[in-house]
């Protein structure tokens, strides 16, 4: 029972675990890079490409979670001045915009990745295929939409949630 709960919680936060792992790898490799360059005198020639890949994965893996935990910023001041009823209308409007923009990004990102699938291009030193590095982006766009609505209905301190709650 307890184990099940734990597994569920891990599954629900898998995006955070992936991003957190990328962060941990980034920190450790950057540190080891310093050690190898200074102490051993043999800099990691592949460090930059791994660092950039980690950065990309941190940003995109956590982008959905950032909705869940209310990290995405918005300028609330204008909408907050409006009557409550109108604010509700705007919640719908904002949701439509969010879905529209992210869907468009999703569609274009698929095309972007096909580019790398077609060319089979990979990073210069380690030969990591770019399709894997950039592949996180479309996944991330899907997670953004899911998490946006999760935050809207289940409630966390997201911008959209505040609009609903402020009645």
């Amino acid at each position: 029972m307890r184990n099940n709960k734990k597994i569920l919680s891990v599954l629900a936060n898998i995006d955070v675990f992936v991003a957190g792992t990328a962060l941990a790898i980034l920190v450790v490799l950057t540190f080891l890079g310093v050690v190898w360059r200074r102490v051993i005198g043999a800099p990691f020639t592949w460090l930059e490409e791994v660092q950039l890949a980690c950065m990309l994965w941190i940003v995109f893996a956590a982008a959905g979670a950032a909705f869940r935990f209310g990290n995405h910023v918005a300028i609330e001041m204008v909408v907050d001045l409006m009557p409550k009823k109108l604010q509700k209308v705007f919640t719908v409007f904002i949701s439509v915009v969010v879905v529209a923009v992210i869907s468009y990004l999703f569609k274009q990102s698929i095309g972007f990745i096909e580019l790398f699938i077609k060319s089979g291009r990979s990073t210069p030193m380690l030969g990591i295929p770019y399709k894997f590095i950039y592949g996180i982006a479309p996944v991330s766009y899907l997670l953004m939409i899911i998490n946006y609505f999760y935050a809207l209905f289940k409630g966390v301190k997201s911008e959209a949630k505040e609009a609903v709650e402020s009645e």
Binding site: N13, V16, A19, V59, A61, A62, A65, A66
Partner: peptide, 13 residues
């Protein structure tokens, strides 16, 4: 780690 990745993501996006 959770707070870091969420904050980083929102800034970098």
């Amino acid at each position: 780690l959770k707070e870091t990745v969420c904050t980083t993501s929102s800034i970098m996006l």
